[in-house]
Design a protein around this nucleic acid. Sequence first.
DNA 1: ACCATATGCATCAAGCTAGAACTATTCAAG
DNA 2: CTTGAATAGTTCTAGCTTGATGCATATGGT
Lengths: 142, 142
Amino acid sequence: MTTPPQAQAIAERELCGLVNGLAAQISDHVRRRAVTLGLTAAQATALRELTGPMTTRDLAERMSCEPSNATFVIDKLEKQGLVERHPHPTDRRAKLLVLTDDGVALRERLLGLLTQESPLAGLTAEQQRTLQELLEKTVARP
Amino acid sequence: MTTPPQAQAIAERELCGLVNGLAAQISDHVRRRAVTLGLTAAQATALRELTGPMTTRDLAERMSCEPSNATFVIDKLEKQGLVERHPHPTDRRAKLLVLTDDGVALRERLLGLLTQESPLAGLTAEQQRTLQELLEKTVARP
DNA sequence: ACCATATGCATCAAGCTAGAACTATTCAAG
DNA sequence: CTTGAATAGTTCTAGCTTGATGCATATGGT
C-alpha cells in the first residue's frame, strides 16, 4: 500500500506541527518552572545542559542554538554569579564554562523541578524508548 | 525490568533535548526555504498553517504560539499584501484571516519548497506513523 | 618558518516571542 | 434588560535568536 505523494507531504507537514507543538510544550514547562527560581527559559535550558565544564560551542550544540546566542545567555548567568568563564587549558581561543557553587546548587533545584509533571509523562518508558530511537534516526543526519 | 527513577529522569531530559533538536532542525529547514521567497521563518510558518480562513486565535493555536505573536506576524504578512483581516460573520470581536490571491500563490510555492529535503525524510512512512501516534499521545493532554 | 584558511568567541542589528495590560464584544445569570 | 465574567484581538516591554562582522588564535600546506 503506497501512499500518494501529496498525502505524504500533508502527513509530513502535520508531523512537523506535532514536533513543534511538543517542543513548545516542553519549552513552556521549563519556563514555568524556571521563573520560580528567578530564571528565564533560555537560562534554565543552559543551566540544565551544563552537565560539566564545556566550551561555549559545546553548550550551543546541546542547546540547539547558535554560539552567539549561547554567549548572550551565558552573559546573563555570569552576571548572576552562576557560571564562570575559565581559560581553556589547550586552546587560547576557547573558554571553559564552569558552574560556581551557587550554579551547581541552583542546577540541582532546577533538575528537581523539571522532573515534575514532565510533558513526556504521558508515555510509558517503553514508548519513550521508541520515541528516542525514532528521533535519533532523524536528528543524526550528516 | 524497572528503571531507577534517577535514570528515568536523565532519559527524559535527553528525550527533551532530542525533541528540541528536531524542532530546531525543522525550523532551520523552513528558514532556509523561506528566505528564497523573501519570507522569515515565522512568516512562512504562518503561511503554511493558513490552510483556509481562520481567526487569529486559531492560527496562534496551529503555530503553537501566543495570540499576540500571531498578531505581530500577521501584521507583516498583511503589509506584504499576502493576508487580509476580514470581519468575522458572527463574532464582531474576532477577525477572519484570509489569504489574498498573491498569498495563495506564494503559499503554493512555499509548500512545494518545504517538501524538498524535509528533516523527516530519514524515516519511512511506517516510522512516521509511529512517531505521529507517540507525539499525539503526548501533545493531547488536557 | 610562513601564510592561507578555519575555528572560537564576542558584538551588533533585525526580527521573533511570551506575558501583562487594555479595549471591545460576547455570554450567562439574575 | 443589566451586570459581571469570559473571550478576541491589539499594544507594549523585556528578553530570546539568528546571521553578519570582526578579532584572536589554531592548523595545515609549502
